[in-house]
Write a protein that binds this DNA or RNA. Sequence first.
DNA 1: AACTTCTGTTAGAAGTTCTAACACAAGTTA
DNA 2: TAACTTGTGTTAGAACTTCTAACAGAAGTT
Lengths: 226, 226
Amino acid sequence: MVGTRRERYREETKDEAKRIALEQLAELGVGGISVNAIAKRMGVTGPALYRYFKNRDDLLTELIRDAWSDLADTVEAGATSSRSRPPRERVHGFGQAFREWALAQPHRYLLLFGTPLPGYHAPQDTIALAHRTTSAFISVLADVYADRPAAELSTLDGQLAAWTRSRGEGDLHPAVPLTALRAFTRLHGVLSLEVSGQFGPMGFDPALLYRAELESLIGVSDPGPD
Amino acid sequence: MVGTRRERYREETKDEAKRIALEQLAELGVGGISVNAIAKRMGVTGPALYRYFKNRDDLLTELIRDAWSDLADTVEAGATSSRSRPPRERVHGFGQAFREWALAQPHRYLLLFGTPLPGYHAPQDTIALAHRTTSAFISVLADVYADRPAAELSTLDGQLAAWTRSRGEGDLHPAVPLTALRAFTRLHGVLSLEVSGQFGPMGFDPALLYRAELESLIGVSDPGPD
DNA sequence: AACTTCTGTTAGAAGTTCTAACACAAGTTA
DNA sequence: TAACTTGTGTTAGAACTTCTAACAGAAGTT
């Protein structure tokens, strides 16, 4: 119960609009989100909503920010709840949290990782929220390498080390940044196609494929196949 | 020079419309494709184009079909041109062909593999074109396993074997379907994020990551990390 | 030459985003 | 309490969009 009465009412109005926008997103995709239609469903006229969102893009930008925030909460919880478990289990727990989030709201997953909205540029606060998810990936994968000897650095390892250092990720085993990146691309590779329905009638269980890819990240020093 | 004069003119008109649609796609995304605007640019009024496309979705459906056809030509060429080279080189050649196609026209890649269009259902001819790409993946990966001993089948291998058999892919090493599937998800995982600009300011070379993932498919029996 | 098919036109309905001008309620200050 | 400022809603309307209907005329066929 923070802010003035007016501020609270304003937030409630925005939340209701975004709630309806998410329904439209789920049903008709990004293109199906209509400021006018949202207003109508809320019992006000179209232009009223422009008091709350500068324009349609502004509404979409908030939906994206909220999704990143929600995802960060989820994967951080997945990483934290398994903090003291062995690295392998931790990777699996974390990976499953990521997957469950994606499958529970595919349209939101695609809002973040699907076709980018033309003209969209992430504002600073959204970038910070996205970093939280990145950091969770890194922290979980760092566990896997905690007791492994340092190997030689590839060019890619070097490039990524520069990036993690600039992000203030602290001292990491040199293989961690690349492994975390591959974790992300491999899991996304499966999830993206799964939520897009591209596996359609192939008749296999995507959960098994996902598990196999998770396992591949733990296996060898270089995240191999199985 | 096939068909009547009228049929040829009709095809030329459709081609011009689709050419302009692809420009709009590249510039403003799927939502930026406007039948009206295309017509205007062609020097006719909006409704004229409805003689050539039943509606906007019909135009998009054709764009998707064309993209699958183009991709199939590309990856088949990549697979064929390297037919007699060693399996490892073949995988790399094929993978690079796939990547170059995606990077040359990111919007088309995303049309096929990005956020699906709500309400879109692939017509039969498009499904057949998509199968050509799938088959190319399988044939290239089959080479890798040509001289490897058969290993035991996992549940996933079994599920996928049923699928490849029903597709008439002939006798395959039992590990091939899963490896081909992982090839697809891993390469897509990298490409999808690269063309979406998600790697933004991370300052690493995606080509190196892509190569590493390609290499991971050859490595061990189960496609491991490096 | 007559008939049919194809391709284009204008008119218009119903939707969209978004701005401008106005009305009035709510909160703040004198 | 009265006056003022801010916030929130309204209607009107411009400029788009998709798509249908009705009509005109060119192209191809018989």
